[in-house]
Design a protein around this nucleic acid. Structure first.
Length: 616
DNA sequence: CTTAGGG
DNA sequence: CCCTAAG
C-alpha cells in the first residue's frame, strides 16, 4: 500500500498542455510531499520522490487525472489530495497525465480502457440528475480542513482489507454478508494479485463487472478489479450506514464529507459501477435514495465510511478520463488526413493564404504555391479526361478566382468547396446563361503543358449577344476597363473573365479591321471566324476603336497598327492615338467623349475614313 | 489584382 | 484561350 500526498503548487497558473491533452486542459503542478508504503508501482517508493513535481489535470473539473483512483486524505490540512497511483508512471517524465499512466497499454487496451470507463460512467447519468454542480476543490480544501487527520493505517498486503480476505470468485456475495468494519483499503501489491494469471484476472474482471475484457495488461486488470472491490466495499459500508439510520447534520456532513463536484460524480460512479453488476443491481433504488439523502443538504454529496465509529475520512474519486495522448494524436492524425484530403479538394479557397511570391508573380502561379502543389499534383494526376465545359453558374462572384482550372471551374465551385475531380467530370454541362445561347459549340480539350501538368483549354464561342454586351460595355466604360465591364455587364457570365473580354475585343477589332482592309480575302479565308458577327456590329466596333484605340502601343507589323494618328489635333500636331487617349485618363466622361468625338468627326469626312486611316 | 500583349 | 510581363 502506498499513499502519497500531493501539494498543489500553482493553482492560479495552470500550465497549458494543449499539445498533449485536450484543448484548454489546464494542468496544475503538484509536488509530492509525502509518500508512505512501498509502492512498487509508484515510481518513487518511500521518500525518494518527495519534492518531485507532477502535472495533474485541473482536479476541479471532473476530469480524470490519468488513472488516479481512490483518493485518501493523508493530511487534509496540508495536502490537496492524496491517493494511490497504481499504474505505471513514466519515471523519466515524472509527469502524470492520462497518457503517461497508460503508456504501457497498447492501443487496443487503451480503447478498451476508455470503453470500460465510459461504461462505468453511463450508469451515473440518472444518478447525477438533479444534482447541482457542487463546489469544487476550494470547498474540498475548506472542508477537509475541518476533518481530523487520518490516523495511520496499516499498510501492506495483510493490513486491513485485501484481496486475500475476499472471495474473488464471488465478490459481491462476499461483501453482502460483511459488516461495516472493513477498512477501506485496497492494495494492488497483494501477493494474490502477483500470483494471479491473466486468466484469473480476466475471470475476476468478468465477475466484477459482468463482462469480459480483452485487455491483457495485468496492471490494468488489477487496478480495475481493485477499484471494483473498492466500490463494493464503499457500497456495502454506505448501505449499512444508511440502513443503520445514520443521519448527518450539515456540520457533520461538512466535516466528514469532502464535498466537491468531483466527489459527486465519483460517488455516483462508484455506485453505478456496482449497480451495473447484476449481482447487486437490486440495490439501485436504495443507492439512489441514499444519494438523495446525502445530497439533501446544499447538494453536497460525499461518501463516508465509518470504521467502527472512527471518523476516517474516506474519499473515493473516479474522474472522467481524459483522452490519452495517443488517442488525441490519432484523432488529430485522422483530422489531418481529412484536412489533407480537403486540401486537395478545396485548395482554391485558401488561395489567399498562399504567400505572394512577388508583385509580378502570376496569380495562376500563385495558385501553385508550395503549400498546395502536392495536393494539386495529386489532384491532376492522370488528366486525360474529357470534362464538360459548362458548369453551374453562381451569381455574385465578386472575386475572380485564380486557379489553374481557370475561371470557370474555380468560380463555379466556389460555393461547394468540396468539388472533387470526380464531381467535376460528373457534372453535366449547364445550359447557357439565360439570355445567351452558346452552349451548343462548347467544347473543351485537355492539353499538356511542358511542365507535365495538364490544363484545360476552353473554347467557348462568343455569341452575338455577348459581343453586343461587350461593345456596349466598351462604349460605356471605355477600352481597358475590362474588370469593370466584366463586373457590370458580365457578372452572370462566369466563364468570361476580364481577360476574355479584352481578348475578344482585340479579336473584334482585328476582325473588323481586316475585313475593311481586305474584304474579299477575309470573307474567303476567315469567314468562319466572324461570319456570325454582322457588319453592323463590326461597324460599331470600328467606331469604338476610333474613340478608344486598342491595343495601345500597336506595333507596325500588325495590319491595323498605325502608330500615329493621322487625325490632326486641335493644335495641328500629329498626336499618337495612345497618347491622346491616355491623356484623357483612360476613360472619359460621356460628355467629354462626345465632345472629343465631335471634334474628331468634324475634322474628318467620316468615321470610317478615320478608321480606315487608322488601319492603313 | 488588373491590364496589355504575345503566342 | 493561355500565358507572361508590367504596373
Amino acid at each position: 500500500m502506498l499513499r502519497y500526498g500531493l501539494e498543489e503548487q500553482k493553482l492560479d497558473t495552470p500550465k497549458n498542455t494543449s499539445s498533449t491533452l485536450d484543448e484548454g486542459a489546464n494542468m496544475f503542478t503538484y509536488k509530492l510531499i509525502e509518500a508512505e508504503g512501498n509502492g512498487s508501482l509508484f515510481p518513487y517508493p518511500e521518500d525518494e520522490g518527495i519534492g518531485v513535481e507532477y502535472l495533474l489535470a485541473e482536479p476541479k473539473c471532473n476530469e480524470l487525472v490519468g488513472d488516479v483512483l481512490g483518493f485518501e486524505t493523508l493530511n487534509p490540512q496540508k495536502f490537496f489530495s492524496v491517493g494511490d497511483f497504481s499504474h505505471g508512471v513514466e519515471n523519466d517524465q515524472r509527469k502524470i497525465d492520462g497518457d503517461a499512466l497508460d503508456s504501457n497499454l497498447t492501443q487496443e487496451e487503451e480503447h478498451a480502457s476508455l470503453e470500460f470507463l465510459d461504461g462505468m460512467l453511463e450508469g451515473t447519468e440518472g444518478v447525477l440528475q438533479g444534482m447541482n454542480k457542487g463546489p469544487c476543490c476550494e470547498d474540498f480544501l475548506l472542508d477537509t480542513k475541518l476533518a481530523d487527520p487520518v490516523p495511520n493505517l496499516e499498510h501492506g498486503p495483510c493490513g486491513g482489507f485485501s484481496f486475500g480476505n475476499l472471495g474473488l470468485e464471488s465478490p459481491s456475495s462476499s461483501f453482502n454478508g460483511r459488516d461495516s468494519g472493513v477498512k477501506y483499503m485496497y492494495n494492488q501489491n497483494s501477493s494474490l494479485h502477483d500470483n494471479m494469471t491473466i486468466h484469473g484476472l480476466h475471470d475476476d474482471f468478468k465477475n466484477m463487472f459482468g463482462g469480459g475484457t480483452s485487455i491483457k495488461d495485468t496492471q490494468w486488470l488489477k487496478l480495475r478489479i481493485s477499484f471494483g472491490l473498492q466500490n463494493l466495499v464503499e457500497l456495502d459500508n454506505g448501505l449499512n450506514l444508511l440502513k443503520q439510520g445514520v443521519t448527518f447534520n450539515e456540520n457533520e456532513a461538512k466535516s466528514n464529507f469532502s464535498s466537491s463536484n468531483e466527489f459527486c460524480s465519483s460517488a455516483s460512479i462508484s455506485f453505478s459501477s456496482v449497480v451495473n453488476d447484476k449481482t447487486v443491481s437490486g440495490c439501485q433504488q436504495v443507492k439512489n435514495d441514499s444519494l438523495q439523502t446525502l445530497s439533501s443538504d446544499d447538494n453536497r454529496v460525499g461518501f463516508c465510511i465509518l470504521d467502527s465509529g472512527e471518523k476516517d475520512l474516506l474519499v473515493t474519486q473516479k474522474r472522467l478520463r481524459k483522452p490519452t495522448r495517443r488517442y488525441i494524436e490519432e484523432a488529430s492524425e485522422q483530422k489531418g488526413r481529412y484536412q489533407s484530403r480537403k486540401c486537395a479538394i478545396s485548395y482554391k479557397r485558401s488561395k489567399d493564404k498562399f504567400p505572394h511570391v512577388g508583385s509580378h508573380e502570376q496569380h495562376r502561379q500563385a495558385g501553385f504555391g508550395a503549400s498546395s502543389l502536392d495536393c494539386q499534383q495529386e489532384f491532376f494526376e492522370g488528366a486525360c479526361i474529357q470534362v464538360p465545359f459548362g458548369l453551374p453558374v453562381q451569381e455574385g462572384c465578386s472575386k475572380r478566382n485564380t486557379s489553374i482550372l481557370g475561371c470557370q471551374e474555380s468560380e463555379d465551385c466556389k460555393d461547394s468547396g468540396s468539388l472533387v475531380p470526380n464531381e467535376i467530370s460528373e457534372m453535366e454541362p449547364f445550359p447557357a446563361e439565360s439570355q445567351d445561347d452558346m452552349s451548343e459549340d462548347d467544347c473543351i480539350t485537355i492539353i499538356n503543358t511542358q511542365k507535365g501538368r495538364s490544363r484545360r483549354k476552353h473554347h467557348m464561342l462568343w455569341t452575338l449577344s455577348e459581343v453586343m454586351k461587350l461593345i456596349d460595355g466598351v462604349s460605356q466604360y471605355g477600352v481597358g476597363r475590362w474588370t469593370e465591364i466584366k463586373r457590370l455587364l458580365f457578372s452572370s457570365s462566369t466563364h468570361r473573365t476580364s481577360v476574355d473580354l479584352k481578348d475578344k475585343w482585340r479579336n473584334l477589332l482585328r476582325a473588323s479591321c481586316t475585313r475593311l482592309h481586305n474584304k474579299r480575302e477575309v470573307e474567303q479565308g476567315r469567314k468562319h471566324a466572324s461570319h456570325q458577327i454582322p457588319q453592323s456590329v463590326l461597324g460599331r466596333v470600328r467606331e469604338l476603336a476610333l474613340i478608344y484605340p486598342y491595343p495601345r502601343g500597336r506595333k507596325s507589323k500588325d495590319t491595323c497598327t498605325p502608330v500615329v494618328s493621322p487625325i490632326p489635333s486641335s493644335t495641328g500636331k500629329l498626336v499618337p492615338m495612345s497618347t491622346a487617349v491616355k491623356g484623357h485618363g483612360g476613360i472619359m466622361s460621356k460628355s467629354f467623349r462626345v465632345g472629343w468625338m465631335a471634334e474628331r468627326v468634324a475634322s474628318c469626312t467620316s468615321i470610317s475614313s478615320i478608321f480606315e486611316s487608322n488601319c492603313l
